[in-house]
Write a protein that binds this DNA or RNA. Structure first.
Lengths: 213, 213
DNA sequence: AAATTTAGAGAGTGTGCAACCTCTTTTTCG
DNA sequence: CGAAAAAGAGGTTGCACACTCTCTAAATTT
C-alpha cells in the first residue's frame, strides 16, 4: 500500500537527498534571501530532516558553499542552452547583437542568478564564505568570457578589449537587475538595449557594412 | 571633574542621540551587513542603550528605513562635494570624461554606498522594507540624473539618451563594485575606463574635434 | 520649587536559530 | 540470515536576537 520504498544503493540514496537539499537551498536563496534560508526552511522545502541535512553538511556555511558551486555549474549549463537556441538565426550583425544583449539581461534576471547575488552579498561581510566563493567567482567569470568568445558576434570586436566589453555588460545588467527590485524603469530598459548597441558599434573593428542589411 | 553635562534642550539631546544611532547603523551596515546590524551592535557603536534606541525607532525595520533615507541624503551631498572639486579643471573633453568615470566609480565603491547595497539587497526579499525603499530609490535616481546633467560633459551627448547612458554607467560600476568583493580584476578595471570612454565617444553628438586638443 | 513630561538605561522575556545527540531505518558485507 | 555501517529522523540545548517593562535622569511647565 505505502510506497514500496524501491531498493536503492546507498550512493543513489545519498545523492538524491543531497540533490533535494541543494535544490531547496537554491530556491530558498532566490526567494527568501541568504538570512531567511535557515536549516529549518531547507528541511521544509526538501522534506529532509535537520539530522539528515547535518549528516551531509556539517555546518550551514558548508551547505551555502555547496549551493554556490551548484549555482555556478547550473548557470553555465543554462548559458549553453541559450547558446544552442541562439545559434540558429544568423541574420545581420546588428540584430544578432541586440538578441545577445537581451539574452544576457534575461540571464542576469533569472532566479538562479538571484541566488548567486545573495551569496555574493553575504560574502562581502562573511570572510569564510568569501574565501570559498573567490575561486568559484573566478571560474564563473572565466566561463562567461570563454562562452562569449564563442559567439559569432565576438569577431566584430578587437580581441584585446572583448573580454572587458563583455564583463562590463555583465556588470551593467547585474546592476540593472539589482536596482530593478526597487525601481524598475521599463521605458529606459527598452531603450537601453538600443543605446548600448549604438555604443558598441563605436568600438567594433571596422566593417560598418553591417549597418545596412 | 566629570563632564558637567552641558545643559541642552530636549530637542538637541534628542537629535544628537538620533544622529549617533543613525551613524552607527550606517557604518555597521557597511562593515557588517544588514543581518549583523543588530540593535545590540548599534548600541555598542553608538553608546546608546537599547531602551534609548527603541524610544526613537519602534522597530528595527523603522531604524533601517531611517538609515536608508540618511544614506541617500548623504550620498547626494557627497556628489555635490565631488562636483565642486571637479568644476575647477576643464581641459579637453576626453580627459574630463575619464575623470568623471573615475569619480563615478569611486562613489560606487564608497563605504556609504555599500550600506545602500545592503539595504537594496535586503529589500529584495523583505516586502515591507522594499515598500519604504521604493520612493527613496526613485528620488535617488532622479538626483543622480539631475546631477549628471549639470556636468559640462553632459552637453556632448544627445539629450534624449543622456539619462540612459548615465544610469547604465552607474549600473555598470555598481555591478563592478559588487563583484570586486570576490574577484577584483585590477588590470581589467584600469582598462575599463579607457574602453568605456571609447564606447561613449561613439554616441557623442558630432564634435569629434575634442579628440585632439 | 513642585509637578509633569520626555529621554534614556538596562534587566527581563519569548522566539527562533544552528548545532548536537540519540535512536530508528536502510543498505552492505560476510 | 546476522553483524556492521551508513543514512536519516527528530527531540534537546544553548545562545543571540528583537522587543518590553520598569526605573532613573534630565528638561519643561506652572
Amino acid at each position: 500500500m505505502s510506497a514500496p520504498a524501491a531498493r536503492r544503493t546507498q550512493q543513489e540514496r545519498r545523492e538524491e537527498t543531497i540533490g533535494r537539499i541543494l535544490d531547496a537551498t537554491i530556491t530558498s536563496l532566490a526567494e527568501l534571501g541568504y538570512t531567511a534560508t535557515t536549516i529549518g526552511e531547507v528541511c521544509r522545502r526538501s522534506g529532509v530532516s535537520s539530522g539528515g541535512v547535518f549528516r551531509h553538511f556539517p555546518t550551514r556555511l558548508e551547505l551555502m558553499i555547496a549551493a554556490a558551486d551548484a549555482v555556478r555549474e547550473r548557470q553555465f549549463a543554462n548559458f549553453e542552452v541559450g547558446l544552442a537556441a541562439l545559434g540558429e538565426d544568423r541574420e545581420d550583425v546588428g540584430e544578432s547583437l541586440r538578441v545577445c544583449l537581451e539574452l544576457l539581461r534575461t540571464a542576469c534576471r533569472a532566479p538562479m542568478n538571484a541566488a548567486w547575488y545573495e551569496l555574493l552579498g553575504a560574502a562581502r561581510t562573511d570572510p569564510v564564505l568569501r574565501e570559498h566563493l573567490v575561486p568559484m567567482a573566478e571560474r564563473y567569470h572565466a566561463q562567461i568570457v570563454e562562452f562569449g568568445r564563442s559567439l559569432p558576434v565576438a569577431t566584430r570586436f578587437p580581441p584585446e578589449i572583448f573580454d572587458n566589453v563583455l564583463l562590463s555588460l555583465v556588470h551593467m545588467f547585474d546592476g540593472e537587475a539589482l536596482s530593478w527590485t526597487v525601481h524598475p524603469q521599463p521605458e529606459l530598459e527598452v531603450q537601453r538595449i538600443e543605446v548600448v548597441a549604438r555604443m558598441l558599434f563605436g568600438v567594433t573593428s571596422d566593417i560598418s557594412s553591417s549597418n545596412e542589411h
